[in-house]
Design a protein around this nucleic acid. Sequence first.
DNA 1: GCCCAGGAAGGGG
DNA 2: CCCCTTCATGGG
Length: 303
Amino acid sequence: MESGAIQLASVGPFDLQATVESGQTYLWDRADGNMYETMSAHGGDHWYETVVPPVEGVSDERAVVRVRQTDDRLEWESTTDAVPLLTHLLRLDDDLDAILDATPDLPLLRRAYEAYRGMRLVRDPPFACLVSFICSAQMRVSRIHAMQTAMAASFGDSVAFDGRRYDAFPTPAQLAERTEDELRDLSLGYRAPYVRRTAEMVAEGEADPTDVRGMAYEDAREYLTRFVGVGEKVADCVLLFSLDFLEAVPLDTWIRTAIADYYPECDAGGYAETSRAIRDRFGGEYAGYAQTYVFYYLRAGGE
DNA sequence: GCCCAGGAAGGGG
DNA sequence: CCCCTTCATGGG
């Protein structure tokens, strides 16, 4: 086991709990089992853990990572040197202050940024991100997380680390070889055939979410909708939370409410037009950061 | 029982 | 192209 700590003074504002429990990622577990239950300000002091597949240019092998925030430090334990991996997964390489400074000074954004100061976007592994947002359709955050946990426990590899076993998210092939009924048994409901078929597409090499690297944003969104169960909204989530398209603004129920209540002139009818309008309103390049703060702020009861 | 949850697919106009 | 219905499942 390797372990260490990242001094956050060199990173800038960071809030681990808000980052991991805000409904952007469904691939981390809280060690105390109380994910999404007891929220506390800034860090929260809880251990979070995940199993990460190899990341090109960052880590050659599958890794188990445990991490917690205490004051101005990020303590970690891992099968490997987790500094580059955590930097990648939690976007510690973003200059958050500069991003927020570049955002338009709108009252709603100001309140959301103040409430969850330090929350960052995540950079999830692409395939798991794709599957988890296919599962997100008409589903509550805690149940989306439960589905990913169930798929990992039932169909993924079991990895030993520090005297315990951790469940890796299934590979495309591991999911593709399951039947629709086996996925329905994990309470995926009508999403079961979507997940199975999309996993098959990736496993067979028919398409891969990372194919969009280098594409123009709207072309990338269009490309991802070829996966079964992926429409424009889910495509935007994968682009934003995994593939570095920080301008993506997923139009979910909460952000649509925000548009109706605060920016009605941005409702331009179709998804693409409305998305373009709210993206411009939120400053363009980093509009996805604003969207994610607003999503979490409104869902937590803010107004 | 009813309503809703980070929507998408399939059909018809 | 837009509009409508259907699709599971669990928690309030």
